[in-house]
Computed example of a mutant assay.
Amino acid sequence: MRVMVIMKATEDSERGTPPTAEAWAAMDRFTEDLVAAGILVAGAGLKPSAHGRRILCDGGRRTVTDGPFAEARELIAGFSIWEVKDIEEAVTWAKRCPDPAPGPCEIEIRPFFEGADLAALLTPEDLATPREGDRGRLGVA
């Protein structure tokens, strides 16, 4: 099962405060452990929301809002994608993660939709003959 591990933003991450050398080294060691275990698929840190945009979709209308966005605790500072046997394995690994920021911070784990989750939406033809570009649509990596 694939999961996205979401590091929630903090006031420090939204200010662009870099991690300490010790925190960076600890995260590097943790990442190396994930790679060695065959868990890590991808991951990246994100710039503060001041560098971002939001697009509100309402019917055919699109409204763009420039960052920064309020409520740092509701924002994402970074993510990784893990391949694990189940959500409990993801939780076990996440509990080993060094603190992503000084002070209280939050890690969220969300499973991806997989092909089996979407089977009710697909026709037998969809399942039998995948087309170019279907990997993302079917939730398959």
Results as ranks from 00 to 15, higher is better:
G43S: 05
I81P: 00
A50I: 08
G67L: 02
P102D: 15
R15K: 14
I55R: 04
A72K: 03
M4K: 06
L75K: 01
E125M: 11
T65L: 15
M7E: 11
T10I: 06
A37G: 04
T17D: 14
R73G: 09
D28K: 10
D66F: 02
V91I: 14
D12W: 10
F69R: 04
T129F: 15
P102V: 14
E125I: 06
I55G: 02
A23P: 01
I87Y: 14
D86V: 04
V84P: 01
A25T: 08
E71N: 09
A23G: 08
W82R: 00
K47D: 13
E83N: 10
V35L: 12
K95G: 06
V41K: 04
P104G: 13
M7C: 11
F30H: 03
E89D: 07
T10K: 03
R96K: 11
L75S: 03
R62L: 09
G59Q: 00
G43R: 01
D66S: 04
T129I: 13
E106M: 12
L56Q: 11
M7A: 12
D58W: 07
D117I: 02
E114K: 04
G16C: 03
S80V: 04
T65M: 13
D28N: 12
D126T: 02
T17C: 13
D126V: 00
V3I: 11
R62W: 06
K85T: 15
V64F: 05
P102S: 15
D126Y: 00
C57I: 15
F69I: 06
L46H: 08
H51M: 11
P19V: 09
E22W: 07
D58N: 07
L75P: 01
I109R: 03
P68R: 10
G136K: 13
S49F: 05
P68F: 14
T17P: 05
L127D: 06
A70Y: 12
D12A: 15
M27A: 11
F112S: 01
T123D: 06
P98K: 02
K85I: 14
V140Y: 10
V91L: 15
P104I: 05
A141E: 13
E88I: 05
L118Q: 00
R137K: 15
